[in-house]
Structures are given as C-alpha cells and as structure tokens.
C-alpha cells in the first residue's frame, strides 16, 4: 500500500501541492489534471525525485525516502520527458537502465528480450534510436519502466506519440499488469484513463479535488448533460449561455453536447455524462466551478 499523508510541496514561495492525502492499493489510478495543476509534482514525489516540504509518503508504512534504494527497486517510472542516448540501440539502452535498476546481466537479458517483443521493437533492437519515430521511442520508454517488474508503475503522459492501435495495446497491457501492482497513470488525455482506471484522481488548485471511480465521478454531473441541435447562426449565443462539451456537424445543424445546471428546455435530450464532460466542466477556462454563471 502506497500512502500520501498530508503532503505539501513548495518551490520557494510558490506552493505546488497542498496537504495531499492519497492511498494507492493494486490497480490502475488515473491522475487527471490540466498542465500546471501539480500532477507532475505529485508524480515526481512518488518517484523520489522531489522531497515533500511537509508530510510524508509511505510504502507499507515505511517512509519512501528512508527506504531509498529498496523503494526505488519496486518502482517503474516513465517521465513526461523521457531521456535516452540517441546513438544507443534499445538493447544497449535497456541494458544500461537494467544496470541502474540493479539487475544482474542474467536477469536483464531475458527480460529485455521479453519486453522488446511486448512493445514490438524486437526487429529494431540493435538499431540506433536516433532514427526512431516518437511512438517507437515512447515504447522504449514503456519497456524501461517495466524492466524490473515493478510493484509500483508510475507513467507520466505515457501515450504521447503512440498511434491509436498502440494506445489500445498499451491500455490492455496496463490492465493486465494492474492485477498485482499499483499503476499510476498521469495524463490530461481523458480517453486514456476512462476505460482502464479503477479510480481517477483529479487535482485542482494544488489540492486533490476528487478521488473516485469513473462511474461515481460521472454521477456528480448526472442530469446536467444534454444534447441538442442548434442552427449555425445561433451557435455563438448558445455557447455564451451554456458550457459546450462537444460539438458535431450533422446535416445543416450543429449537434451540441453541453452542460446546464437548471431545468431542461424542450428539444434537449438528457445524456449520460462521461469523464471528459466532468473534466471540461471542472477545468473550464481555468475558472473555479462556482464562478460559472448558471445557464438561463
């Protein structure tokens, strides 16, 4: 069990996180927030790259800073900006990371072969990475995070650069991995989290706003999400009154999915909210939820 107890993080006078309390058991956790909300700060503290200014993070009751290498032995981490040596091949690079993770050559070799196959890079295992596409590089990053078969897998924006097929494969992989480990997935891409996250954590204003299942989170705005058709010349007026969640061109009109907190009007169809609706609603215009003028 990974616990975050009353953790705050300050950079000088700037407070990046305030009094965070979290608990992670085995399963996939989606960490959702727009850029700058503090999720990378939290991720970095979980990866021991940043030290909490207040509070502590424990694993099975032991402070992770005090655990030092014992904790990082359990850790797999893919940073948002994943670094590598351009002239190294995936094989060479993963051998280096395995050494950093304290794995012996005997442990590392079969594991590297297994992972290169898993991320479909076995054919280019000996090629220099400077010629790789963004997606291929990201797959090397995913492989390095999983090298030591970590009990805690922390992935910061892991699907950046992956094509749709790779994203599906990656999501399935995470689901299978999460049976016996903690997987924390930090992203601002809602569709990466929604299908696989057991729980979603949303951060706002440097604090944890929600930590709940996708269903429970979506119920927070249940009955407030509608769809309707709007003529093009009325669209602007409509948008100024209601919070538009998504729009789609259908014949000569716009089909708008929107949020309204008052009574429904004729012609509006209530729909089941999804996580993306909640995300847009929560982080709209960078404004506080309460600031939004109610729809008329």
């Amino acid at each position: 069990m990974l616990n975050v107890h009353q953790v705050s993080k300050n950079f000088g006078s700037f407070q990046a996180l305030r009094s965070i309390d979290l608990e992670f058991a085995n399963g996939v956790y989606g960490l959702l927030a727009p850029n700058g909300a503090g999720k990378t700060t939290l991720i970095k503290m979980l990866a021991t790259l940043l030290f909490p200014s207040e509070g502590e993070i424990t694993y099975n009751g032991e402070n992770i800073t005090a655990m030092d290498a014992r904790y990082r032995n359990l850790l797999g981490y893919l940073p948002q900006q994943f670094g590598y040596y351009k002239n190294d091949s995936p094989q060479k690079y993963l051998t280096y990371i395995a050494a950093l993770k304290g794995m012996s050559q005997a442990e590392a070799s079969p594991r590297i072969a297994e992972l290169l196959k898993l991320v479909a890079l076995e054919d280019v295992a000996g090629k220099k990475m400077k010629k790789f596409s963004g997606g291929m590089i990201q797959r090397v990053g995913i492989a390095q995070a999983m090298l030591n078969d970590p009990k805690i897998l922390i992935l910061d924006e892991p699907t950046a650069g992956l094509d749709p097929k790779e994203r599906v494969r990656f999501r399935n992989l995470l689901t299978s991995l999460a049976r016996d480990r903690i997987v924390i997935l930090s992203t601002h891409i809602v569709s990466d989290v929604e299908p696989i996250a057991g729980e979603v954590i949303m951060i706002k204003d440097q604090r944890i706003l929600y930590k709940d299942t996708v269903d429970h989170l979506c119920r927070r705005i249940e009955g407030r999400v509608f769809e309707t058709y709007v003529e093009h010349d009325e669209a602007e007026t409509f948008r100024s009154r209601y919070l538009s969640l998504s729009e789609k061109q259908e014949s000569s009109r716009l089909k708008i999915r929107f949020l309204h907190e008052g009574e429904a009007m004729p012609g509006w169809t209530p729909v089941m909210p999804n996580l993306e609706d909640l995300f847009i609603y929560t982080y709209r215009d960078g404004q506080e939820q309460e600031d939004k003028e109610p729809a008329k």
Binding site: K44, A47, L75, Y77, G83, L100, G102
Partner: peptide, 20 residues
C-alpha cells in the same frame, strides 16, 4: 550530456538513484 538528453529523472528514479 545526461541533463541535455533528459536522462536525470530516469537515472535518479532507479535503484542506483542519487548514488549515480
């Protein structure tokens, strides 16, 4: 070179960590 290549985070989050 490691800073330039953005490797520090990975290196320091590994078991070797800051001993690197």
């Amino acid at each position: 070179r490691d800073r330039h290549n953005g490797l520090i985070q990975l290196q320091y989050a590994s078991a070797t960590g800051r001993r690197l």
